[in-house]
Design a binder for these strands. Structure first.
Lengths: 115, 115
DNA sequence: GAATTAGGAAACCATTTGGTTTCATATTGA
DNA sequence: TCAATATGAAACCAAATGGTTTCCTAATTC
């Protein structure tokens, strides 16, 4: 029974470009902090903090190997995002619903000054 | 030639739960600010600011009708998110790659103290 | 035309965020 | 054992974020 409620959610976690890049990096392979830091132009401490946030969102796991801490991706929490996104599929994949929407709009409001 | 570089990107826009709720609301139908505000427990001004951020990310459009401003969803920018997400599909939909990963890990490093 | 209604703009505020530097601790390696 | 290495923790800081209140303008309605 570790942490039931994550302190950072996945939406927040991926909001930062550095963290998105981190996820990409760690999807290739497990990496210790020092190697990870080499891919960024910020201090090791800053990278470490981003890793913590990803970890709190469950997107990354770490294990100690000797004196280094290796991080790797855990993509599972991205499911939530995918599910959320799926709801909006009909709004751009199915253009028909959009079209119907606009037609109704024109009819119900003749004072339309949109254009 | 309006704004080539949006001030807020879609990742940032959906990071806030209020804004995600807004997108859900506006997917049903176009709505004026006052009606939208009724669905939240914050001031109209605060809601208005969230709408602005969504608009800057291209996720929402507005049109003036009389004295009211009606907002509606534009889901198109969510494609970017969907594309980004797609890259990670193999990491949880195809469990084989994950399995292979763990096996290699055990072999190459006997000092594993993960558990 | 005066009062009401819808909404944006500006100033302000507390908290969060993304970064830094500095210090402490554990593991190696000579 | 002692120096070097890898990392985390803590204190600090500027800027961004999410809210509020107060004021202004444009439509609407009586």
């Amino acid at each position: 029974m570790s942490q039931a409620v994550p302190k950072h959610d996945v939406y927040q976690a991926i909001a930062d470009p550095t963290r998105r890049k981190l996820l990409g990096l760690l999807s290739d392979k497990e990496m210790p902090v020092k190697e990870i830091t080499g891919h960024f132009s910020m201090t090791r401490t800053a990278v470490s903090k981003h890793l913590r946030i990803l970890e709190e969102a469950g997107l990354v796991r770490d294990r100690k190997v000797g004196r280094e801490t290796r991080y790797r991706l855990d993509a599972e929490p991205l499911k939530e995002l995918k599910d959320w996104l799926a709801y909006f599929d009909r709004f751009w994949e199915n253009k028909l619903s959009m079209l119907r929407y606009y037609v109704e709009e024109q009819q119900e409001d003749p004072s339309d000054n949109d254009k």
